[in-house]
Design a protein around this nucleic acid. Structure first.
Lengths: 215, 215
DNA sequence: ATTAAAATAGGGGATTCCCTTATTGTTTAT
DNA sequence: ATAAACAATAAGGGAATCCCCTATTTTAAT
């Protein structure tokens, strides 16, 4: 039984490298590649792969939001996140979005095949370093309410924040998300209020610190 | 004649992918891999490869400094930069450091083989997008004057940029510098034009990279 | 002394920011 | 099951900013 895979990463040469490695494996077929979140979601819907290997830092829609959409819109699809960051926030959000695996880009390829097998067998897979983070988090986490400390933005808000921090104007964002300018303004305000931040500059810094955008 | 290559990138899975692709080519041999700048320099010295394929964003020593050291310490070695950024600063610094080629990670692998052939034939190779940046830069940069390539901001402009990147509003900046709001607007525009940047978000990122403000 | 660059500033239209209010659908809790 | 809370959408309206030009006055630089 072939495992049908969609590869999502914004860097073509990286996709090609991964594809070359994956296709040397038995029982794995890369049926499509995507370079941004939106086409990943679209292709997944259309092709119903068994697995999506998803980079987190992509333009347009980030991997987390894409994962959320994929999980809610397509049946019997697994997502493995492939990320540069071991930041707990990413891991947490990605798992909450429904990903079954989380690998770091400095993992060996061998680990990716292990992750694919594990995930296709219905079990979650995390890179050892990630497991570490998750456990550490779990240990001193769920006492009462700590959430107020890191004030969670909603998925949509993060999406908007990412676009803001990439330098897009309100108008551009509105048209790229197909909603009104007013809606984006409201999101921006909501974000600023939650974070107690009052300028685009600081919002950008926040987004960089949180890994929502890159320098 | 085999081209002996050292691959330097901090993400193992990316190195492996590239290696898989490269080794399918005739006349190319990957003789070593490195995951940071320091070991890249060390390995290059020890193994005298024909070519180093160098990621720019690495821990410890970045790809630019590593390239500078490699070029000055090892004979008959070429460097091709493989980067996520088309930012002209990176390109410029990398070329100044002595790299013969500059590719973007969203290039096709085909382009990498072309770059390798071109560079091994003694000619420079740049990704089309990069060429574009370089040409644009070249066009409105007067020859003999090197500093104009750096696009120096004036002291006043830096001052204004710093305040912008700290999240101050135009009005606040104007009043703290005792000039009119219009003056600050003009400075901002001038800064943006010089840097070819068109949003506060990107301006903030630039300021962080330049150390004008901190995260 | 002439030219060039830097700092200053205004006009005016487009856009964004900011605060408020509101509707609708979806979770969550009791 | 129903109330309460949250998320996403959007509008009004005034203040502020952005953006594209033009323009004057200092301040180097040749």
């Amino acid at each position: 039984m072939e495992v049908k895979i969609i590869l999502a990463d914004d860097h073509k040469i990286i996709r090609e490298g991964l594809k070359a490695l994956l296709e040397k494996q038995q029982g794995i077929e890369v049926i499509a590649e995507a370079q941004d979140g939106i086409s990943t979601v679209r292709l997944t819907k259309k092709l119903s792969p068994d697995l999506v290997i998803m980079d987190i830092g992509m333009p347009d829609m980030n991997g987390i939001d894409a994962t959320r959409m994929i999980i809610s819109e397509t049946k019997n699809v697994k997502v493995i996140a492939l990320s540069m960051h071991s930041d707990r926030r990413f891991v947490l959000e990605m798992l909450k979005a429904g990903a079954s695996g989380y690998l770091l880009k400095d993992s060996a390829f061998e680990e990716l095949t292990l992750a694919i097998n594990t995930v296709m067998a219905g079990q979650p897979y995390l890179s050892p370093k990630i497991t570490d983070v998750v456990i550490r988090e779990y240990i001193h986490a769920p006492q009462k309410d700590e959430k107020s400390v890191f004030t969670t933005l909603t998925a949509r808000e993060r999406e908007v924040l990412q676009l803001i921090a990439e330098g897009k104007s309100t108008k551009q964002i509105a048209s790229s998300l197909n909603v009104s300018v007013k809606t984006i303004e409201t999101h921006r305000q909501q974000i600023m209020e939650k974070l107690n931040i009052h300028s685009i500059a600081e919002l950008t810094k926040y987004a960089i610190r949180e890994g929502i955008t890159s320098l």
